[in-house]
Each structure stands twice: as structure tokens, then as C-alpha cells.
Computed example of a mutant assay.
Amino acid sequence: MDTPTRPQHGGLVEYELAGMDVADVRFAVSPLTELTLSLRTFREPGRYPVHLPWLRRTERARAGLDVALLTALTNEAQWTPDYLTPRPHSPLTRLDDELEAAARVPLDRLRDDLRAVHPDGLPAPLRGDLAVVRDRVVAALHAYWDACFAPWWPRMRTVLQADVVHRGQVASAYGLGAMFTGLSERIRLDDGVVRVRLGSPARFRRPTTGEGLTLVPTLFTRAASAPISPAEPPTIWYGARGAGTLWQAEPVRAPGVLTDLLGGTRAGLLSTLAEPASSTELAGRLGVTVSAVNQHLRAMRAAGLLSSARHGRSVLYLRSELGDALLGAAE
């Protein structure tokens, strides 16, 4: 994806909506796109102040990753390889499916996408046998997801899906023109043509006939963007609403008698764990440290109020039958 940090003049992508194509504008969410675009924060975290709480909480986990390779997947203009920001087909797209496709990307496409990001020469982690580089990229992204995204993804996905619902409501109430204008100041719909002003010098116009136009909200972009090649499926990425609230601690309401019995944090945990969650996710939601949450979770599990199970690299906790009974009695 070609999204420079400093605007350059002349970049314009135009998608022609004709006939039934107007009804074929769809929204979708891409976990791999979020994962890839988040790599921009590695280079310039100060440009993404809304995500600083997340960067602090995942700092230790990132230290164990293939940071050199992950950083090489962006450049100083914050471009990323197009094949790692694929057009998703649903608001429920799965990361495993997208990574599987990335692991099969043709090597000539891989070479061209990497050179587009680094036209003056590839960084050392991206040099060498292309098949080896392809496998290393997928492995590094998978490890990055497990360490830094999986615990937070339910929360991220909720914000993204809420944005999709909002845009649909705007389109229904005020029309497609108002919906497109609300996505970004860089996007307009005029006479059946969607125009996206880009920071790159890319310029092309193409119809969406037979393919439709996919709109993808993301938490890691500061402006609208689109593929730089007319050969790519018609796609527009735009900043999702609500990103500013993503890392705020959530107030958890627990019955007063339960708070008196267990204390505020443990009562909040018991009320929250109707669905499985990791200690990292719970720490972010409650606004406390991971070590503190782990101490409470171990004590509550020992008391029979919680059950736990390993999922990948994370341990997920869930309220037990005894915990359900205690919460029900308190309510």
C-alpha cells in the first residue's frame, strides 16, 4: 500500500461506478492489513500517538520478534507491500486465510512489491532467495500477531465493525455521496466516479465492473489510500472512527456486594469474564498492569471462580460455574 507520510502533488485514483456497480460497494475488514499497517508505528511511533499505550504494553513482546524484517516491510515514506494489504472479502475475514494466501504469493509478485517499497535497493532482511524471504515474512508476521495482536484483536475488531455499521447507516440515511465524503477529506463521489487523492504520484482511472469496490476501515492510517496499480482490485482504505478510544480503560460495573467481598479489581474481572480473555487483554480493558491481573487471576482460579485454557501463546480465562453462581447470587 502506497501511503507516504508527506503529500506529493498529482496522485489521483478514480474508480468508475456504473450501473449495478453502485450497489456493489461493500465493506470488509482485513486482519492482515491491520497487522501490516501497524508496522508503521515501529519507525515513527510519535506519528501515531493514539497507539502509544499499546506500543508500551507490547514493548517487551516485540523485543523477541524478528524486528529487523518487520521494520524492513515499510520505508521512510511508510509504504508497505501491496500483497500484504489484500482486499478482504468479508467483515469476518480470518488472518490464517490471509497469511496462507501470502505464503503462496507468486515470487515475481513478491519481488515487484518489495522493490516498489524499496526502489533504491532492498534492506538486508529482504535479500536473497525469494522463496526463503517469503516464508520468513509470513513467519515473522505470524509471530507478531501472536505476541502483540491476538490479545487485543477482539477489541480492535469491535471498533472496525462498529465503523462499518456506522457507514452503512450514513449511506442509508443520506446517500452514497455523503458516506464517501465522510470517509476522508481525500475521497469524493462525483457523477458516479469515486476519486481518491493520494500522497504518491500514482494516477489512473478504471471501472469497477465485475469486481465492485471494497472499502476497508483501518486503525493504522492517517489518511485514505488505495493500490498504486490499476491491476489491483478496486479498494480504498480509510481511517476508522473510534480509534481514539481504543486503548482507554473500560469501566467495569460489578454488584456492590461482590466488590465488598472480592475487592474492586477481582469483582471487575469476574463480571468481565463471561467470554474468554487473556491477561494482557484484561489489563488493557481494566487499566491495570498485566502482572497485577495475573496475580488476581491465579488467586481466583485457585478458588474455583475461573477456568483457564492455553490458546496459542496465550492463556485464556473464563468464569467457571462457581463464578457464574456467585455473580448471579450477587446480582
Rank of each mutant, 00 (worst) to 15 (best):
His166Asn: 11
Arg167Pro: 02
Arg167Leu: 09
Gly168Cys: 12
Gln169Thr: 13
Gln169Phe: 10
Ala173Gln: 12
Tyr174Glu: 14
Gly175Phe: 00
Gly175Lys: 00
Leu176Ile: 06
Ala178Leu: 10
Phe180Val: 01
Phe180Pro: 04
Ser184Ile: 02
Glu185Asn: 10
Ile187Pro: 07
Ile187Trp: 11
Arg188Tyr: 06
Leu189Ser: 02
Asp191Ile: 08
Gly192Trp: 00
Val193Tyr: 04
Val193Cys: 05
Val194Ser: 05
Val196Tyr: 00
Arg197Asp: 02
Leu198Ala: 03
Leu198Val: 01
Leu198Ser: 06
Phe204Glu: 01
Arg205His: 04
Arg206Tyr: 07
Thr209Gly: 13
Glu211Met: 15
Glu211Thr: 15
Leu213Asp: 01
Leu215Glu: 13
Leu215Phe: 04
Leu215Arg: 11
Val216Trp: 06
Leu219Cys: 06
Leu219Lys: 05
Glu232Ser: 15
Pro233Phe: 07
Pro234Thr: 01
Ile236Phe: 01
Gly239Met: 12
Gly242Ile: 10
Ala243Tyr: 00
Ala243Gln: 11
Gly244Thr: 13
Leu246Phe: 07
Trp247Gln: 11
Ala249Trp: 00
Glu250Ile: 09
Pro251Cys: 12
Pro251Ile: 04
Pro251Ser: 10
Pro251Gly: 10
Arg253Asp: 15
Pro255Thr: 09
Gly256Met: 04
Val257Thr: 13
Leu258Thr: 07
Leu258Asn: 04
Asp260Phe: 14
Leu262Tyr: 05
Leu262Glu: 13
Leu262Cys: 12
Gly263Val: 10
Gly263Gln: 02
Arg266Cys: 15
Arg266Phe: 12
Gly268Glu: 08
Ser271Asp: 06
Ser271His: 10
Leu273Asp: 02
Glu275Ser: 10
Glu275Met: 11
Pro276Gln: 07
Pro276Gly: 09
Thr280Phe: 14
Glu281Lys: 12
Ala283Cys: 15
Ala283Phe: 09
Ala283Pro: 09
Gly284Trp: 00
Gly284Asp: 12
Arg285Asn: 03
Leu286Glu: 03
Gly287Gln: 08
Gly287Pro: 15
Gly287Leu: 07
Gly287Val: 10
Thr289Leu: 11
Ser291Trp: 06
